[in-house]
Every structure is written in C-alpha cells, then in structure tokens.
C-alpha cells in the first residue's frame, strides 16, 4: 500500500539528508507507528507519502501511484484517496463542525445529497454526534482532533496518515484518539501514525518503524518504544 524503496530526501539549503536510504513497506490494512525524536524524519516520511514533497532519490509508491513520476496535475486526484491528520488540527475557525467536515467533500465536488448523509454518519463514528453545530473554539482539543479525523476519513480513504495527532493532547485524551484510529484501521483503512509519544505506542503494541537521523534503525511488529530522555 505504501512502499519506500531506497528513499533519500535532502531539503534545499540543507546538507544533512532528512531521510537517507529508507526502505519501508506498509501492507494494506496495517497500522504502523513511525517513531523517533524530533527531527528524525517522521514528518518528512509522511510528507513524501502525501506528495507534499518529492524524494531526492529512490521511489515512493502509494496506493498504486509512483509518486516520483506522478504529474502535478494528477496530485489532487491522488490525494482524494488519502486522509491526513496533523498535530495542529487545521480546522477552519469560522465554520461549524458540520461545515468543516462537509468542506472536504464540497471542494472535491461531492453532491449535496451524499454530503448530507456522510457528514453526520462520520461525526457519529468519531463520537461527536450532536456537536455538528458547534464552532471549533467551543470544543476541547480532543474533540477538535476528532473533527479533523472525521474530515480526513469522510471521503473513505484507503490510507490515513497522522502526523503527531496526539502531540497537543493530554495522555488520557491521546489514548482515546489512538483508539479511534485503531477502530478506523479495523474497518479497513491503512493507518500510518508518526509520534514520539511512547505511551500510546506501548498501549497499542503494533508495528513500529523507528527513525533516527533519517535512518530506519528498527522495524518490528508488536513493538514498544522507549522515548529518549527529554523528548517526551
């Protein structure tokens, strides 16, 4: 489903590669944690998978697309099959919860009838039934992240990429969010979650890909993660 072959990424005006010679293969339906300290290349890995960046060398295959040759014109259509969630939620402050989720469907031209059905359905799935009329600032951090997750999955993507989704949340709320992602995963969506939060990783016992200085130093099933001191 997601396949990195000998991928190296060097950002312009940087001498040190953000990722160097990374090989990772994520199968359909997997749940993978990408862990490592800040600056280890987790976000770069996700940005490459989302085609927000292009690999300097090596090939990135996502959902059947070779991203190194995918033309810019075809990027939007590719992204419709991928959901993405971020640490900072990225909700639109002027729109209600309903509108925020509906926005993702409106801008890709979904018919209004489908939107009317999908939005409440998805909000119920993430546990926000009855909060559709609220504005983001009237919600807690955990609830806001649920809205962001609802928006990411409302179009039923094959893959959900999460970049530190619990980075701004309390440990208890973080676990709730990861359990929600787990439920989405069990429904068939491939989930890749970058985090440096050891508790959530250890709670889940899923596959862990550990990065350090842009290099994959560990790739294990049912693994735990011991965050380095000072990086929690």
């Amino acid at each position: 489903m997601i396949r990195f072959d000998n991928v190296t990424k060097v950002y312009p005006r940087s001498t040190r590669p953000a990722l160097s010679d990374v090989n990772v293969n994520v199968e359909r339906g997997e749940f993978v944690f990408v862990v490592g300290p800040s600056g280890s290349g987790k976000s770069t890995l996700l940005r490459l998978a989302l085609r927000e960046e292009k690999a300097t060398s090596g090939s990135v295959l996502v959902a059947g697309h070779d991203l190194s040759t995918l033309s810019a014109r075809k990027v939007p259509r590719f992204r419709r099959g991928i959901g993405a969630v971020f640490q900072d939620f990225r909700l639109l402050p002027g729109k209600t919860v309903d509108q925020n989720v509906a926005f993702a469907l409106q801008v890709i031209g979904k018919p209004a009838s489908a939107i009317r059905q999908l939005v409440p359905e998805t909000l119920e799935m993430v546990g926000l039934e009855g909060k559709g009329k609220r504005l983001p600032h009237q919600l807690s951090g955990g609830e806001q992240q649920r809205v962001a997750i609802a928006r990411a999955v409302v179009n039923k993507p094959q893959i959900l990429l999460c970049d530190e989704p619990t980075g701004n949340l309390d440990p208890k709320i973080s676990l709730d969010i990861v359990h929600l992602l787990d439920r989405i995963n069990r429904a068939g969506t491939t989930v890749v979650m970058a985090t440096h939060d050891a508790d959530t990783v250890n709670d889940m016992r899923r596959r862990v890909v550990q990065l350090d200085d842009g290099v994959v130093v560990r790739d294990e099933e049912n693994a735990t993660y011991l965050a380095p001191e000072g990086d929690k």
Binding site: L50, P76, R77, G81, I82, L92, A104, V107
Partner: peptide, 9 residues
C-alpha cells in the same frame, strides 16, 4: 491548505 490536502482540483 485544506483544499490541497483533501485533493481539490
């Protein structure tokens, strides 16, 4: 940013 993220043309 969100439009680009969700694949708006």
């Amino acid at each position: 940013g969100i439009m680009r993220l969700v694949g708006a043309s």
